[in-house]
Write a protein that binds this DNA or RNA. Structure first.
Length: 976
RNA sequence: GCCCGGGUGGCGGAAUGGUAUACGCGUAACACUUAAAAUGUUAUGGGUUUCACCCAUGUGGGUUCGAGUCCCACCCCGGGCACCA
């Protein structure tokens, strides 16, 4: 007998399969298609680890099974190769990220080959390949053109270590998901994708995914976080008004005097039914309303201090402080509860979030725990307005309400003030709404106060720009010249420049400050009426001919007046912005002003005004024919940390011509996040080499949707959500044929070290799959990996346990190479095994499928195996252990083609059930004996047989049988 | 705090409301061997007064002829969200 030399066998077949391309899928094949997908890896320097092996093997086993079942299976692979590690490696070692990436890809590919994975290598994609990211950029442009990509300056999550902005989804417990650094809030210009516009569609889509795990759907649903509620308006009056109303105003007069209200604000609430219980309002310190009230309040300093304090505290500090409430009252202003006209105080507190709802809430302390905590701390009134029950009685509604209130007040006296949320209760203490059910009251009260229904989501827009080098450049161009025509009319002032150095400095942003002497006597030289936000038309003219050479629009960012040049000089901040040149003295500044004769005189007389200005540009998409926008090859990639991409410093790349006006323009320097390339890669697999479009529609129609997508739970609110969003968008544009990209989602648990801990380098407990494959073979590695436990559960690796699989394969080898017996009838054990393994594979219950093959082997070893038994056994293990199966198949059938394109064995359901079955006999539910009965025996016969059993008779001891329960082929239970 | 999972021998785990502990690991004895390894055979939930009985699926209740499985309450472990009004 030949020895089972796994090293030789595995190498041999890996080479042969690659050469014969037996795993390549044909487009438009007549066989029904199956698309099996795994999350493509990031090719890191570390290589692939156990965490990769698990889904890849799971996908591979399933693909191999489906191929044998007669499907045209595509099981593609690629590389998600943009991202920080490659860039950081490049910075450290001074190599191109593309070079280290290529090296890592080669290594990962070698690993995949050595594991016997049946990928279709002809469809390999790489997100960093210009032929690929051309289409990533193209999709971005479609989003941009539909208004779904926008630029905005705001507070975003900033990782100080990686020196880049992060999406909401990338922040976990206030830390950077990638490096664990505490995330800061930074005010930055960023590109966003309007994923919120798709919130409802993303939610709706989940309802049509019956083959997704509930846990995944629930997690996405919670992340989107839909709430239905109402927007309610509260009028705000200031102290002076309040004094007026003191003079005997009643409700009637209040209405007629409503014009006195200075302003109003809106709150979002899911419980408008509790409006009568709203005893104060709370605004977010960073929200839009707070600022506008500052001028009206009497304790401005205190409030500003609180706002400052909120800004300074990191997310972590806030969490560490727990739910201890802090806040400040906006003294001097009041809101009016629109239900009863009551004047209620307005507070600010950091428990109200600026970017959810309107950034303001109505507080109902009796029925909301957070409001209650706050009210308790600051001694604010608490009013109970809900009760769980309404009594159907003769009493009047008012009387009942009064009684409920009395009970609640009693509770209050006893110290139980908080009444709970009362989801399905009745109103009390709410005027004419008393005893109305809460659900009905929500809408009735909203109507009464002129509010409107509002659906609110927790989901935020996707921060889509990164200030790093190694990513897809955002294919946009900022043009100042194109901004001039439409803004020329709006310009408040035209300023002329004659010196090229000054003009250049203005254009490239090294000179940000423009000063003018104030001259109140002459209106055209006054300049004092230019305000922040105004546009200025700057003209560069020829000194002699006064002909305009170039014109650009600038916007005033800030404005300051100084009484003289020394005052300007004293403002260090201003001097830096004035020019890139360092002015060391007032004298030098004066020298700079001396080009106009009477200029210094005018400054001396009236002072000067200084505007911080920035060029106004129009964003122009790069024309499709100019895609892809590729990265410049440079030596330095270091992130700047200023919020600018390192690309911003590469003048030769940044400066370009505007595709619109052909004038000088600048490229957008932010790059896309790593999630961009993976948001559509499964589409590219359908047509990976297409030069004209991201993929041919016919091919997409054939291959998509993905039938099974294997991956990790950690991508649920990241990649899985993002890619659904892009797919839905592309579907709306008619580019892809299906709404939902993945029919079935299968998540895997972690592989833990033998002690149950996570595998990690620092713990020194990492099991290297390459080492195991080298020692025991890829077949053993694969089969053991799935045998460890259920695929969706975490499992612990065991070095001892894997020997069981090694022994199993050795025994299979021996059996197949050993004696072959003849048998007249079919072996029912084979049919049972085929049925069980097939069903388990369909349900991804790989561990029990493997155990079924073991049971089958045990039977064959005991009873002998025919040629057919051997063939069945080898086919059943083929998806798990493809190399040994292929070798044994060749031994069994020297002329046959590969086992992996052979037909999966069929089973006869009749042969899967035994003629007789062993049935347990219980007395009062306790097992006393086991009896073998023929399958179709009648209950009377069973009774006769069972009651004559010796063990049963002695156990009964003559007791009377009260009941005889016979569940055919399952159980017999005698009740006495 | 809220939302998902999960808790079964010494270990990984199996069980459409119907013989709990399949399959594998480990352990023990035996066979082969000068010996060891490998291999094979047998045994293996715990307890006891062992031809039998009792107790065991995180804990405590309940439904049922019968519960690991269904219901209620609680405990522990893993994951997610976290002041989202």
């Amino acid at each position: 007998m030949k020895k089972y030399d796994f090293k030789k066998i595995e190498k041999k077949w890996q080479t042969k399969w690659a050469k014969d391309k037996i795993y390549s899928a044909n487009d438009f094949d007549s066989k029904p298609k199956k698309y099996v997908l795994i999350e493509f890896p990031y090719p890191s320097g570390e290589g692939l680890h156990m965490g990769h092996l698990r889904p890849y093997v799971a996908g591979d086993i399933y693909s191999r099974y489906l191929r044998m079942k007669g499907f045209n299976v595509v099981y593609p692979i690629g590389w998600d190769a943009f991202g920080l590690p490659a860039e950081n490696y490049a910075i450290k070692h001074g190599v191109q990220p593309s070079v280290s990436t290529a090296k890592n890809v080669k290594n990962a590919k070698r690993q995949m080959m050595s594991w016997g994975l049946s990928f279709d290598w002809e469809r390999e994609v790489n997100t960093t390949d210009p032929n690929y990211f051309k289409w990533t950029q193209w999709i971005f442009l479609q989003l941009f053109k539909k208004g779904l990509a926008y630029e905005s300056t705001g507070l975003i999550n900033w990782c100080p270590k990686d020196k880049t902005g992060l999406a909401n989804e990338e922040v976990v417990n206030g830390r950077c998901d990638r490096c664990g650094t505490v995330v800061e809030q930074k005010e930055l210009r960023q590109w966003y994708l309007k994923i919120t516009e798709y919130a409802e569609k993303l939610l709706e889509g989940l309802k049509h995914l019956p083959e997704w795990p509930e846990a995944v759907k629930i997690q996405q649903e919670n992340w989107i976080g839909k709430s239905e509620g109402a927007i309610i308006r509260f009028d705000i009056e200031s102290q002076t008004d309040a004094d007026d109303t003191q003079t005997g105003a009643d409700d009637g007069q209040r209405k007629s005097a409503s014009s006195r209200y200075e302003s109003a604000l809106e709150v979002f609430t899911t419980r408008p039914d509790t409006l009568f219980g709203a005893t104060y309002l709370v605004l977010s310190p960073e929200g839009k309303y707070t600022k506008s009230f500052l001028s009206q309040i009497t304790n401005r300093e205190e409030v500003e201090n609180y706002i400052e304090r909120t800004k300074k505290r990191t997310e972590e500090e806030r969490t560490a402080e727990g739910k201890e409430k802090t806040g400040a009252e906006l003294k001097g202003i009041f809101a009016t509860n629109p239900t009863n006209g009551e004047r209620i105080p307005v507070w600010i507190s950091d428990y109200v979030l600026a970017n959810y709802g309107t950034g303001a809430i109505m507080a109902v302390p009796a029925h909301d725990e957070r409001d209650f905590e706050f009210a308790k701390k600051f001694n604010l009134p608490i009013r109970v307005v809900l009760h769980e029950k309404a009594q159907a009685g003769q009493e009047s509604i008012d009387a009942q309400a009064k009684e409920y209130l009395r009970v609640e007040n009693k509770k209050k006296e006893d110290g139980e003030i908080f009444a709970g949320a009362v989801e399905n209760g009745y109103l009390i203490n709410s005027g004419k709404f008393n005893l109305m059910p809460t659900e009905k009251a929500k809408w009735e009260i909203t109507k009464l106060v002129g509010g409107r229904k509002k659906i609110q989501y927790k989901l935020r827009d996707w921060v889509f720009s990164r200030q790093r080098y190694w990513g897809e450049p955002i294919p946009l161009i900022h043009c100042g010249h194109c901004a001039v025509p439409e803004n020329k009319e709006k310009a408040k002032l035209e300023l002329n420049f004659y010196y090229p150095e000054v003009w250049e400095a203005l254009k490239n942003g090294t000179k940000k400050l423009e000063t003018r002497a104030l001259n109140p006597e002459e209106p055209e030289r006054y300049f004092g009426n230019i305000k922040v936000g105004d546009s200025l038309l700057l003209s560069f003219k020829d000194k002699k001919t006064k002909k305009v050479k170039e014109q650009l629009i600038f916007r005033v960012k800030s404005s300051n007046t100084y009484k003289d040049i020394s005052a300007l000089f004293a403002d260090k901040n201003a001097v830096v912005k004035f020019s890139n040149k360092k002015y060391s003295s007032v004298k030098e500044l004066e020298k700079g002003y001396s080009y106009t004769p009477d200029y210094l005189e005018r400054i001396k007389k009236n002072g000067l005004i200084a505007w911080e200005i920035e060029p106004v540009t129009v964003t122009i998409p790069v024309p499709e024919k100019n895609l892809p926008v590729v990265l410049p090859k440079v030596k330095k990639y270091e992130p700047t940390g200023t919020g600018e991409s390192p690309l911003a410093g590469i003048a030769s790349w940044v400066n370009t011509k505007c595709p619109n006006c052909k004038g000088d323009a600048k490229r957008e320097t932010n790059t896309m996040p790593q999630w961009a390339g993976s948001s559509w890669y499964w589409l590219r697999y359908a047509d990976p080499k297409n030069k004209k479009e991201l993929a041919d529609k016919k091919k997409l129609e054939y291959w998509t949707p993905v039938d099974v997508y294997f991956g990790g739970m950690e991508h649920t609110t990241l990649h899985l959500l993002y890619s659904r969003f892009w797919n839905l968008f592309l579907y709306d544009q008619g580019i892809v044929p299906v709404k939902e990209p993945y029919v079935r989602r299968q998540v895997h648990g972690m592989i833990l070290a033998s002690n149950g801990e996570k595998m990690s380098k620092s713990r020194g407990n990492v099991v290297n799959p390459d080492f195991i494959a080298g020692q025991l073979g890829a077949d053993t590695l694969r089969m053991y990996e799935v045998f460890l436990g259920p695929h969706d559960m975490s499992v612990s690796w065991s070095d001892q346990g894997i020997m069981g699989i090694k022994r199993f394969l050795d025994r299979v080898w021996k059996l197949v190479n050993g004696e072959t017996i003849e048998r007249q009838t079919e072996n029912p054990e084979a049919h049972k095994a085929i049925k069980k393994v097939g069903e388990d594979l369909e349900g991804f219950r790989y561990n029990t499928a493997v155990s079924a093959t073991m049971i089958f082997l045990n039977k064959l070893e005991a009873e002998g195996a025919t040629q057919k038994d051997k063939e069945v056994l080898v086919k059943l293990i083929a998806p798990f252990a493809p190399h040994i199966a292929e070798e044994l198949w060749l031994i069994l059938n020297p002329k046959a083609k590969s086992i992996h394109i052979s037909e999966w064995p069929k089973f006869d359901p009749k042969l899967c059930v035994d003629e007789s079955v062993k049935v347990g006999v219980q007395i009062n539910g306790k097992l006393k004996d086991v009896v073998e009965l023929s399958r179709d025996i009648s209950e009377d016969e069973v009774k006769k047989i069972v009651l004559s059993l010796e063990k049963i008779n002695s156990a009964l001891g003559g007791s009377k049988v009260k009941r005889f329960i016979y569940v055919p082929n399952k159980i017999i239970n005698i009740v006495i």
